[in-house]
């Protein structure tokens, strides 16, 4: 049970949503955009999120788009994670999304909610970081399109009145070799330790990580080291750690030392799968 009440709005257009936000905020309210709502509900119950009005964006048609348009895959922000496996247009996204939470929860959790949430895993962003995707963001001045790498630094940098509408990814990325692996300390359904996703473009391996630091990230400096083919796999993995952002997570799911141990082994596994056994 959530201990506070709020107003509920379900706009049918982007403009209606952003106008609502402005009107509510100008009256001193604390509106919040709502998509799957799982984090708002669970953190609201713990009084770690507070709002006096939710603006549910699920009825805005643009947020429900899932398909190709002009050689781009358009991913609406209010799509549930489960749809990416039901209609698998983007295999890397499908593989990464199917490891988030559990099947039933993925029917409610949305890709936009995962990307914009407070939880530090936010694995849903990894495929988009690896594929040079753009984001379409709605705000008081309309919808703007930006390269994700320009507006993502540890988190998607949205102004208060803005919300994520869509992500756009070039179709050519759908065909590229990839790997995405989630590691847990216990069982298949335990909480995540870390996720590594990788994509091979023009012979060069790209890497993005979740659960290593308190935010997901892609590191081009680490990628340069991990692609230096003169070095053995393990040496490359360890050398790439010089460029890891800080801090390394150190919590009940795993100590920082354990996370780095698992990360090194996972990276080595990836290099073996992409480049073959070192002894051959």
């Amino acid at each position: 049970m959530i201990s506070f009440d709020f107003e509920y709005y379900r706009p049918k257009s982007i403009k209606e949503a952003t106008d609502l936000y402005q009107n509510l905020a100008s009256r001193g309210g604390k509106p919040i955009y709502y998509s799957g709502g799982t984090e708002i509900i669970t953190l609201g119950r713990l009084n770690r999120v507070y709002t006096d009005a939710v603006i549910d964006i699920k009825s805005i048609p643009e947020t429900q788009t899932w398909g190709f348009h002009n050689n781009e895959l358009i991913t609406g922000s209010a799509l549930p994670l489960s749809i990416f496996n039901e209609k698998n247009y983007f295999p890397l996204l499908a593989e990464t999304a199917r490891e988030i939470a559990d099947y039933t929860s993925r029917i409610k959790i949305t890709i936009g909610g995962n990307i914009c949430g407070q939880i530090f895993y936010r694995e849903g962003i990894l495929p988009f970081l690896l594929t040079d995707s753009d984001v379409l963001i709605a705000g008081s001045k309309g919808v703007k399109r930006k390269p994700l790498k320009e507006v993502f630094d540890q988190k998607l940098m949205l102004e208060r009145e803005e919300f994520l509408v869509q992500l756009a990814t070039k179709k050519i990325y759908m065909e590229m070799p990839f790997l995405s692996v989630k590691k847990r300390q216990q069982w298949k359904t335990g909480y995540p330790l870390l996720t590594v996703a990788s994509l091979k473009k023009d012979g060069f391996l790209r890497f993005a990580f979740s659960g290593v630091c308190p935010f997901p990230f892609r590191s081009e400096q680490m990628e340069t080291v991990l692609n230096s083919r003169t070095q053995p796999y393990e040496e490359r993995a360890l050398a790439s750690f010089d460029y890891l952002p800080q801090p390394i997570l150190n919590d009940i799911e795993g100590s920082n030392e354990y996370r780095l141990f698992v990360l090194k082994n996972t990276i080595v596994d990836f290099l073996k799968k992409f480049e073959g056994d070192e002894n051959k």
């Binding site: 509920y8 799957g36 709502g37 799982t38 509900i41 669970t42 099947y103 039933t104 929860s105 029917i107 409610k108």
Partner: peptide, 8 residues
Amino acid sequence: PMKSCLLL
């Protein structure tokens, strides 16, 4: 299936 604790 839907977890009714995650649904208003």
